[in-house]
Design a binder for these strands. Sequence first.
DNA 1: GAAGATTTAGACCACATGGTCAATAACTAA
DNA 2: TTAGTTATTGACCATGTGGTCTAAATCTTC
Lengths: 236, 236
Amino acid sequence: MRRGLEFKKKARIIIVDDNYEHLNGVRELIEIESDFDVVATATSASVAISLIKKYRPEIVLMDINMPEKDGLTAIAEIEKLDLGVRTIALTGYDDPDLIFRAMKIGAKGYILKTMASAQLIYAIDEVAAGKIYLPNTLSSRFFEYFQKSFKEELQSISDEENLLNYLTQREEEVLDLLTQGITYKGVAQKLFISETTVKTHVNNIFQKLQVNDRTQAVLYALNNGFLNKRKVKIAI
Amino acid sequence: MRRGLEFKKKARIIIVDDNYEHLNGVRELIEIESDFDVVATATSASVAISLIKKYRPEIVLMDINMPEKDGLTAIAEIEKLDLGVRTIALTGYDDPDLIFRAMKIGAKGYILKTMASAQLIYAIDEVAAGKIYLPNTLSSRFFEYFQKSFKEELQSISDEENLLNYLTQREEEVLDLLTQGITYKGVAQKLFISETTVKTHVNNIFQKLQVNDRTQAVLYALNNGFLNKRKVKIAI
DNA sequence: GAAGATTTAGACCACATGGTCAATAACTAA
DNA sequence: TTAGTTATTGACCATGTGGTCTAAATCTTC
């Protein structure tokens, strides 16, 4: 255990949990089973934030399920401070949406309260060593959720129902400029054609996309992967 | 090993790799070290796809680094077929961008060629059992990349430089309706105020966002996290 | 209670936008 | 070669949009 940390100074930890009993349980566990240094504890997110500013710990163990200011928002705030503090989310639920949001806002680890104590120590070890750690079961859940959301996104885009596919090349060029907030006059200049021509194209675009004005056209384009079309093709 | 699969039928596998030697290496490995059934192999992505349609394997081992049609595009196509085929990416590089893109398009696992053979078998086991599997080292890389991209996205948004923050509540409501492509008249009806009032609000919005028309305003709103604001506040 | 911000509203004007009809040139594809 | 699609342009008109100025009612905040 504690691989590669033998010669480093002990990682300093702050524990945040509104459940006082559980807070002390975790504290004792860490003090007995590891040689990390619990420098402070808090039972609310707002107190935690000021303690973090004061003590500048390496690690924060943050309970996610708290009243008033919830743990996720707290993690987001801590990340925003940009103090290099690494936060591990601690919760009773393995809800993939929770896991996803936690990782999204910058949590460096996510541990269930029901997991073995060794797992917690190991997670802290890893995170203290600069890694991001998710237990296999949770990372599996995360990826399922991650892929599901992307799949839905792709499906909604690459449909044959996508009216954008009916646009001609020139119309796409015009729409592209519209999605940059350019006027008739501007488009005409950029494409070296008359303003009237642009209007014709724009009207045809409206017909094909079944909308009444540029704003709706731009929104349709954006919501149906107009920009992505190129990006996805090139980037995937 | 092979936990929980004792009574299921052997998973059928197709291996795809343009390197013939490596292909056979992997094949032998699987045939010797596991009891999976390698039903076919292919040295190109296009051949692989037709084989997959024919054999309907449970698992596909796909080399990512291939000429012509590359492995990632192939995985995307396989996913689009929606045959329930589960693909594991196989490559020499642990480039986080590659890992990210592979998982994004639906790969159920990602293994390095340099990894121990036991690791490969284990990965197939897990994926065959319906899980998504990434070795810890790779999942760590994935998450770093994942968080970095989100951090950049958030930073560009949550700036104090975000002109959206200067909008009053009412102006936000109006802008919200504009981002749905609604006209003056429509907004007036929705908010139970006169059209003139809407125009006043809209003009103020333009001033504050430093734009000249609704399209630009909508684009500014969308590019600077206007929709996210609520979602993030409420949903995170 | 006074100062300030916010929300409401009208009037007036210039111009951008959207709708429709017609017509030519060019480049496919049958 | 012919029919069809695409790209181009003009004219005309109704209306939506954006700019500016003024002003009252309401709500905060000190």
